[in-house]
Computed example of a mutant assay.
Amino acid sequence: MARNQKLTGVIQGRTIASLQPQDVQLQITFTDGSKMTIRVSEIPQNLPTGGTVRAVRQSGTTLQLDMEDGSTLTLQTAEATSCVLLRDKNGVLEYAD
């Protein structure tokens, strides 16, 4: 699976504070206060807690967040594009795809 260089560069090193499922999307809040919203086709059953992002990989509708501890959070996005939105703690757009 190909690395999403742009998103990796933006969130690499950020630690997940919480994962909140909301109907057809998942909101990931990082410890720096930034929030990433991902439109998903389904919410994964076992959502991990914590973890620091090492890299992001993406192929079609599969998005994977690789963590520094070796674990991976795999999400199925609703579409191949236009499903990820990241805003900093002040609500300023950092990434959109």
Rank of each mutant, 00 (worst) to 15 (best):
L26K: 09
T81Y: 02
Q58R: 15
V84M: 08
I16N: 05
T77K: 12
A2S: 06
K35D: 11
G51I: 13
T62W: 12
T8W: 05
P21T: 12
S71N: 15
S59C: 13
L47E: 00
A2G: 05
Q22R: 10
T31I: 14
Y95Q: 09
S82Y: 01
A55Q: 15
Q25I: 01
Q22T: 09
K35H: 11
Q25V: 04
T8V: 14
L85M: 11
M67W: 02
A2Y: 00
I28F: 03
S18V: 03
K89L: 07
T62Y: 11
L93A: 14
L86I: 15
N46V: 01
E79G: 07
S41E: 05
A96Q: 08
L73G: 04
P48K: 00
E79M: 06
D66Q: 14
P44H: 02
T62V: 14
T37A: 04
P44Y: 03
A96K: 11
V10T: 15
K89P: 13
I28T: 08
L93I: 13
Q76L: 01
L63I: 09
Y95K: 08
G91K: 13
S41T: 03
S59D: 15
I28C: 08
T52Q: 14
A80M: 09
R3A: 02
T49Y: 06
Q25S: 14
D88Q: 10
A17Q: 14
T37W: 03
R57A: 11
S34Q: 11
G9H: 09
L75K: 05
L7W: 03
D32N: 15
L65P: 09
D69L: 07
E68S: 02
S41N: 07
L63M: 12
K35R: 15
Q27W: 00
S82W: 01
D69T: 12
K89T: 12
Q25K: 15
M1N: 07
G50Q: 06
M1I: 03
Q5L: 13
V56D: 08
Q5K: 06
T77W: 02
V53T: 12
M67P: 01
A78C: 00
Q25E: 11
I11K: 01
R57H: 14
T77E: 06
L65I: 07
A17M: 12
D66R: 14
T77V: 03
Q76I: 00
R54H: 09
R57I: 07
V40E: 04
G70S: 05
A80E: 04
A2N: 08
F30Q: 12
R14L: 10
T61E: 13
D88E: 09
K6Q: 12
V92W: 02
T77Y: 02
E68Y: 02
Q58K: 15
T29G: 12
V53W: 14
P44R: 03
I28H: 00
S18R: 06
F30G: 11
T37D: 04
T74N: 09
T81C: 00
Q45C: 00
M1L: 10
V56S: 12
A80G: 01
